[in-house]
Design a binder for these strands. Sequence first.
DNA 1: TAGTGGTCTAGACCACCAC
DNA 2: TGGTGGTCTAGACCACTAT
Lengths: 280, 280
Amino acid sequence: MGRSRGMAPFVGTTSRGGGMAQSDPLYQRIASDLRDQIRTGAIKAGDRLPTEVELREQYDVSRNTVRLALGVLQNEGMISSTQGKGTVVREQVMLTYHAAWAESRDRHASDQTDAFYAEMRDQGRKGEYRDFEMRIKPATPELAARLHVDEGDSLVSRAISRFVDGQPFSLQDSYYPMDISQECGLLTPHDVPGGVIRALAAKGHTEIGYVDELTTRMPRPDEARKLGLSQGTPVLVYVRTTYSDKRPLRLTLTIFAGDRNRVVYELGDLTAYAENGGAS
Amino acid sequence: MGRSRGMAPFVGTTSRGGGMAQSDPLYQRIASDLRDQIRTGAIKAGDRLPTEVELREQYDVSRNTVRLALGVLQNEGMISSTQGKGTVVREQVMLTYHAAWAESRDRHASDQTDAFYAEMRDQGRKGEYRDFEMRIKPATPELAARLHVDEGDSLVSRAISRFVDGQPFSLQDSYYPMDISQECGLLTPHDVPGGVIRALAAKGHTEIGYVDELTTRMPRPDEARKLGLSQGTPVLVYVRTTYSDKRPLRLTLTIFAGDRNRVVYELGDLTAYAENGGAS
DNA sequence: TAGTGGTCTAGACCACCAC
DNA sequence: TGGTGGTCTAGACCACTAT
């Protein structure tokens, strides 16, 4: 093949402001070139990219090299490929989860779903939950430390998947110490009427403090499947531990699809914020 | 080549609890096999994996297929490869950022660095900051909306990189409206004695409310470089907008390396938490 | 059926690291 | 110097989608 290696297609684009040196690998330069086309709007969100064969001819490289370049952008979450259809630029729709007050709103509560419903309704979306499961699980070291029980002790796990407009949104799993679960009737594979938080409060276990921990990581294969995540989408891991005046009551682990979720805290006096249409 | 395709190496490992079906792609099955070995501790954090050539022989596939499998695990953040050295299982060291009170601690303040120092000292680490930069930047739509200025208006940007024990930790960029910056002396390419927050308060711009937004995404190439992120490491994006009783004062954008950071909020009455050694 | 991306092979040469 | 991962080629066949 008469390749005129590393020339024409890159003219004027390789030595742009932020990045690519002349000596970078071919696939990185192709990735960079496509990234720029997306960033500048030459290829817009939702648009199809050239096919792999077209890119192969356009840049005069092997298909494998084209796929390496597309892989880079896929891992950055910029594009998404589907067999038989093509490769498109991904578009983002962000939903907001108000951590500070999401659970304390006093609505028609039904398990942990009330807050979620209210949030979604406020944002004009249709929230549902699916796949409720109640299980008994042994405490991992992390769970044991946070709930002040011994490692391996039985915990009650109540898990649900949240969907918005038919799309998976987050996976939530709440853990309760066994003694509290028995006292408050959490050992049912159904919704707790009025919600778990009220059931706890009714027996004197009132939640008065929260510790929230937020981290991020790449999803495990089953999480990617359940959340329908495409390559290059991280998850936001949100762990809330709640306390009464005496002890930890509950640990709720939420795995948010990173490309569709934003967690918000509103703290202090936000008069100026609310006045200007901030609080949705 | 006499390949006995898809047999021996997988016996007893392919149809484990959560996952791999017999019909999955070869490279996925190899990835799954290695993932299990890591998960079960057969290969521990810090250990070296077999070389690509060894894996190629072990599974009787082409080297390219081995690399596809390793790519999967790399994108999950489980392993890290270095040219000439090999491939190792990554280990995690998590540091904690206490969002609720990080900025309100009244120590020997020096720009935005006081809170960071205090946090790191509490965790027994050595915090430093590098690469301070003061710039004037036009407001993007996102910045304009949050700071209640017009798009394109000039904003003062004061940026630093945070390092812990010599390792990059997070990138921080604070934006201030131009009128406040002039009034409070923020247009200097140096630290503001006593800290910016005090300088604002001294002129009557006291911060009394915060809105924090947390999202995650894959890093852009320059962020990955500055933070020294390896493949498959997302970033945690933390945006804090602060308010006086009248208006937004400041927007601070922090990009945390996702594999080394945890953001924590402590809310409400946490007597029970503190009593049991919770508050570090 | 034609075209797309998905998987896989069997080589090659290069850059970096430890010895 | 030998071994490692990094890059790249030039094919092949398959699975899925659109028409």
